[in-house]
Amino acid sequence: MPVTIANTQLWVHDQDVALKFYTEQLGMAVRMDVTMPEMGDFRWLTVGPVGQPDVAIVLMAIPGEPVMDAATGEQVRDLMGKGFAGTIFLSTDDCHGTYEEFSSRGVEFVEKPEERPYGIDAGFRDPSGNHFRLTQVRADFGA
């Protein structure tokens, strides 16, 4: 039986800050925002692209004990600060236009759109340091 990807997860420092960034600056939709008191007020927060209702990004707060010890939490924070805790690849039909739109909403790019062998590509990070690639793939790439 085939499987599909429903969710992917990113660690975030602050779920409220992340929610604002992903919805207001990237234009994503909230998929779920549920707090479970019976699990110590664990918050399941997901967002996703408006045109892809079957895909969601879990914006996961870095847990403390007993789920994650302090040393591991610091390692995760360190990797996030360097942009190495994960990467989300976003595709667009107009990298320059999306770059301008996102920039006007306050997204700070670390790399402006550039021509690459596979298309046009730009890079930015979210408030927690997670790395994003914004790519317009050439129509003939991989053909």
Rank of each mutant, 00 (worst) to 15 (best):
Y99D: 03
K20A: 07
F132C: 06
T46P: 02
E108V: 11
S103V: 08
R43E: 06
D54R: 00
M80G: 00
D16Q: 11
M80D: 00
I62E: 07
N130L: 07
N130P: 09
F124E: 00
T35I: 14
A29W: 05
A71P: 03
Y22M: 10
D33P: 15
N7I: 09
G86D: 12
L19Y: 09
L90P: 08
V67Y: 14
L59M: 14
D121Y: 10
H96C: 04
A29H: 12
G106H: 08
L134A: 03
S91V: 08
S103H: 10
E100T: 13
I62M: 04
W11G: 07
K82S: 10
A56L: 09
P37F: 01
D16V: 08
A61S: 13
L26E: 03
N7D: 12
H96L: 04
V34G: 00
A85P: 00
V107R: 03
E114N: 06
V110G: 04
Q25W: 08
A143I: 04
H13Q: 10
T98F: 01
F141L: 02
D33V: 11
T23G: 01
C95E: 00
V110P: 02
L79Q: 12
R105F: 13
H13E: 11
G51V: 09
S91W: 10
A139W: 02
P117L: 09
A122P: 02
T135Y: 08
V76I: 15
P53R: 08
R31K: 15
L79P: 02
P66R: 08
M39I: 14
S104P: 13
F84P: 00
C95A: 15
V30C: 03
R116F: 05
M68R: 02
P53H: 15
V12P: 04
D14Q: 09
D121V: 04
G64R: 12
L19D: 12
K20M: 03
R125E: 00
Q75V: 07
Q25R: 02
A18H: 00
W44S: 14
Q15F: 13
L26C: 10
A70T: 10
A70I: 06
R31C: 09
T46G: 03
L79V: 15
T46H: 04
G27L: 06
C95R: 01
